[in-house]
Amino acid sequence: MHPRLLKTFLEVARSRNITRAAEAVHLAQSSVSDQVQSLEAELGAALFTRSKTGLDLTPAGLALKPIAEDLLRLDGEARAAVQAAAAQASGSLTIGALETIASARLAPWLPGFQARHPDITVRMKVADSGALRRLLEDGDIDVGFCFERRDVSKGAADERLARRTIAAETLVLVAAPGQGAAPSDLAALATLRFVATEPGCIYRHMLDTAFAEAGVAAPRLVAEVGSIGAIAQLVAAGAGLGLVPRLAVSGALARGDLVELPWPGQMQTAPLTMIWRRRRVQPPALGQLLAAARETLAPVSERSQLSSEPESANRSKALL
């Protein structure tokens, strides 16, 4: 069973649709169908059946799915082991990131990394937090950069994934110029109008958590939008207040499109985290990127703070 066929099979199983699977693996629909049929002919069993809601796995397909995932993982580890044995820090890497992190942090940083490692080709995919996790699990990206939910450290972490926080991004309360001073306590602030992303998004989680930790109900939202950029524009137009990472609105603050108001409580931060799959043998190119991100992606003022992390965080360095 060729890894290419297994990857296509898993994408069809995930999307339950030939068209969406073809888009995900960058093939024509006919090629996806041909690959599935080739795999079925090789195994001597049908893997999918059609239903009103899409393609469903047959009992044979359900049996193959976890084995296909293991085989693709082993294929990657075999390639990594050969590269490590040959001391080859070359090859290609695919980075996944939230749009804000990709534009504000990775875009200025990646050219320097590529200049220092010309034998490593780096591609980037921009997606939301949920999509980044799926891309990591499916092996479509090598490392993801996102803002981590703080409740991950309380038992919700996936042990198949390794993670390391490399920066603590400050959250800022922003408003349109001339809107006036913010209330001096969170209860009063919660009575004002806010703009936020949809439920389930990491930015919405940051807003809800900031009030919940103080025992205050979340504020009323006048709009739920899909991006930090849209939040910034709505806030600048006077629709309401926003609580967002500073790096997402630094340009708007510098231009005077937005103003920062004092947060009436403990300063809020968002942990910028890189996440990758645990492997018995790590590809040398990925090791180079993880080490470089750990040492150079965080601002200088944050590196000294991160160097004094507790022992539990230091142990994660052994994964690099």
Rank of each mutant, 00 (worst) to 15 (best):
A187L: 11
L136D: 04
G178N: 12
P219V: 03
D185Y: 09
R220D: 14
L135A: 07
A236R: 01
L258M: 09
D119V: 13
E213Q: 14
P262F: 04
L247R: 11
G155V: 01
S184R: 15
G200L: 02
K154N: 07
G256T: 07
S227W: 06
Y203R: 10
R133N: 10
V259T: 09
A181M: 06
A237E: 13
R193G: 05
E198W: 09
R193W: 04
V195K: 09
G242L: 04
D257L: 13
R160H: 11
G256K: 00
E224S: 07
T121G: 08
T165E: 06
V143F: 04
A181W: 00
G229F: 01
S250K: 12
V172Y: 15
A217M: 10
D208R: 10
G229H: 02
L221R: 13
M206H: 13
M206W: 08
R160E: 08
I202S: 15
D185N: 15
I231S: 05
Y203P: 00
G238S: 04
G238R: 13
A131C: 02
T191S: 11
R123G: 02
D138R: 01
R160C: 03
A236C: 03
I228K: 07
L253G: 07
G200F: 01
D119M: 12
V222K: 13
A162V: 08
A188W: 15
I141M: 02
Q233T: 08
G200K: 00
A223Q: 05
L258F: 03
L186F: 03
Q233R: 13
G144I: 09
V152T: 13
V122K: 02
E224P: 05
